[in-house]
């Protein structure tokens, strides 16, 4: 649907966008405030950024969070892509309804419920099998669970839109179904796979509630450390850290979005040139 919008509509759109961005911009502004007092402007300074490098607790937590996010997003992409293939390509199989439910429910399930139920599973598993010990492993397992849902939904819609006839053509030319999928369809859905990996990575990096339940007493992820600091009030070094994270993630997402749109355009053009 492409029709002209009234000024009233456009102003709501821009008001909404301003609402989404204003707090982040103000936060970045505060992070350069030399004064540790939040209501006084003490001049421009990058001191709080320097201070981050000396905070061992934050660095350690950041390292753990990065390790968790790398492992969990990779695991989630593998499981989620398999689930998407199963749901799109296999019209009927035993457990299809169950799988559909289990990939959709985590998207809306309040984290606090997922967190407590998974913790209870892990402590019961430890009683039965002496595994997994709370820490890195349990955080990764629970992050894979909710990230898989996002991966499945993203890849599923892309796979549904993919043209099946290309794959059939490859099979007519003698490729096995597996080879046809890997060489024809996989490149087509790869932008969705990459973006869902990125999404899983940022979601895992950001998770506070589920990690707090399953992490156990020994391990603290970055959001857990940030939460316990900001719970005590505004702190200038967290402003600096938050600005860094928000800008880094924003830049990555914009770059990835740009690269994928470009690759997509090229593929469409090639398909058009090929007379498709």
């Amino acid at each position: 649907m492409e029709r002209r919008s009234s000024t009233a509509l456009l102003s709501v759109l821009f008001f909404g966008i301003a609402l989404l961005y204003l707090p982040i911009l103000v936060l970045i502004g505060y992070s350069f405030n030399a004064s540790p007092l939040v209501n006084v402007w003490g001049g421009f300074s990058t001191a709080w950024y320097g201070e981050l490098l000396h905070n061992r607790q934050l660095l350690q937590a950041a390292l753990l969070s990065l390790e968790v996010a790398l492992t969990a997003s990779t695991g989630a992409v593998l499981l989620g892509t398999l689930a998407a293939i199963a749901l799109v390509r296999f019209a009927r199989f035993r457990g299809r309804l169950l799988l559909t439910g289990m990939v959709n429910a985590p998207l809306v399930m309040p984290e606090i419920i997922t967190g407590i139920t998974q913790l209870l599973l892990f402590v019961s598993m430890v009683q039965l099998f002496s595994w997994p010990h709370r820490g890195f492993t349990t955080i990764v397992l629970s992050h894979i669970t909710f990230c898989t849902a996002y991966v499945t939904i993203t890849v599923q819609s892309r796979l549904q839109a993919a043209d099946r006839s290309l794959e059939e053509a490859a099979m007519d030319l003698g490729a096995s179904p597996t080879r046809a999928f890997l060489e024809v369809t996989l490149p087509i859905i790869s932008p969705a796979i990459i973006s869902s990996w990125l999404l899983s990575f940022t979601l895992s990096l950001d998770d506070l509630v589920i990690s707090s339940f399953v992490a156990g007493p020994g391990a603290s992820t970055l959001p857990m450390v940030i939460y316990s600091k900001v719970k005590l009030g505004v702190s200038p070094d967290i402003n600096a850290l938050a600005s860094l994270i928000v800008c880094a993630v924003g830049a990555c997402v914009i770059a990835a979005g740009y690269l994928m749109t470009r690759a997509d355009r090229r593929r469409t053009r090639e398909a058009q040139l090929a007379g498709h």
Binding site: D206, P223, V230, A242, V246
Partner: peptide, 16 residues
């Protein structure tokens, strides 16, 4: 874009 960036940090930013 805001959805991709940290939820916790955005809530914290709102406090500002």
């Amino acid at each position: 874009l805001p959805f991709w960036t940290s939820f916790l940090l955005r809530v914290y930013a709102l406090e500002g």
